[in-house]
Every structure is written in C-alpha cells, then in structure tokens.
Simulated assay, not measured.
Amino acid sequence: MTEQYDDNYATCDRTAVHLNIYTGASNPDEVTRGTGITPTRLTRKGEVVLLSRGRHHVSPLNAWFLDTESHVTSRDLRRHIDWMLTRLVEARFDAAALRQRGWEIRFNCIWWSRYNTGGPILWPRQLMDIGALGLECGFEFAFYSDTTDVVFAEDA
C-alpha cells in the first residue's frame, strides 16, 4: 500500500494537531531548552494573556504549546501528524523524561467536520510512531459548517 495524502479531504473543514505540555511550577522555557523545539506559544502562570476576542485573561498555569495550524494548510490530518512527528523525532523527544518531571503531555488531533459525517484516517506507521514516542493520542471532533443540505447514505 502506498501512502498518499489527500490535501483536499472532502469531509474535512479544517484539522490540526496540538502538542501541549503543562509544566506545573516549572518555567515552560525549560521545554524549549530541553527539546530544542520552538513552541507555537507558551504561557506562564500569572501572565496576562490577550484572548481572541480582545479580552484579557490571567493564565492559571505554565504551559508550552506546539501546533500545526500555522504550519500546515492541508485538510488531511495525516499530513499534520507527519509534520508534528518529524519535529519530535528530530528533537529526540522523550515523553517519559518529561513525565518524570511531573509534566503533563497531551497530543491531540482536532477535526472540524465539513458535513457532520466522515472522519480522519491514520496510517499504521503513524500509530506506531506516536506509540514509540510514548504519547497517548486524543481526538476532538467538531462541526462548524454552514452546510445544511447533507444527504446521509441511509437517506439516499
């Protein structure tokens, strides 16, 4: 079987992968120093953060975030996963060592459905690579499309 991406994935409106590391009392810059990976963003406990709608929020935690949203434009989750895995493998990411410090790690795949049907596909290689890095893989699904004339197979 040949792996091929489908960058225009018909049932997907938008997709992304997020790696979130919550560092407890430790400065999240320690993740950057330890991995060599530049985060998409980070927050420090007590820091004032500007939210998307112009409101301010005081961060309740120290956290380091890396996501694919500003790096990958494909609607194929597999491409997002490969982008993330490439960075983690190159950095010799060691989830077990980070957890030993008491840090919480979340590897999440997010899928916004275009028609409230369908869903992402992962290749076996990706599942094995995620496991080899010691990561659990979470999924979040959402439906935000304006499409209302969806025909389901059982209605056709």
Results as ranks from 00 to 15, higher is better:
N8G: 12
T117H: 13
T86M: 08
E47K: 07
A95P: 01
V49A: 06
Y144K: 04
Y22F: 11
R14P: 00
L19G: 02
T15R: 01
R44Y: 10
L122P: 01
D7G: 07
R87A: 11
K45C: 04
R125I: 11
R53Q: 15
W123K: 11
T32V: 06
W64S: 02
G134S: 13
R78S: 04
E104P: 00
C12K: 09
M128K: 05
D94L: 08
S113I: 01
I105L: 15
I121G: 13
A91S: 13
T11N: 15
R75L: 12
L66T: 08
P28I: 08
A97Q: 04
N116Q: 12
M84L: 13
C109V: 09
A156C: 11
A25K: 09
P39N: 04
P28A: 06
G36D: 01
R125Q: 13
R79Y: 00
A10K: 12
L77T: 00
L77F: 02
L135K: 09
R87L: 14
E3R: 11
F107P: 01
Q4H: 15
G118F: 02
C109E: 05
V151T: 14
F65Y: 12
N20E: 10
I110W: 05
P120R: 08
N108R: 06
V58P: 03
P124T: 09
L51S: 13
F139V: 07
G36M: 05
Y144Q: 02
V48N: 07
M1H: 12
R87W: 12
N108A: 05
G102W: 03
L133A: 10
T38Y: 07
G131L: 07
G24I: 11
G102V: 00
D94V: 07
A95I: 02
R114W: 02
R99V: 14
G134W: 05
G138E: 13
S26V: 07
R33H: 05
L135N: 03
D155V: 03
V58W: 03
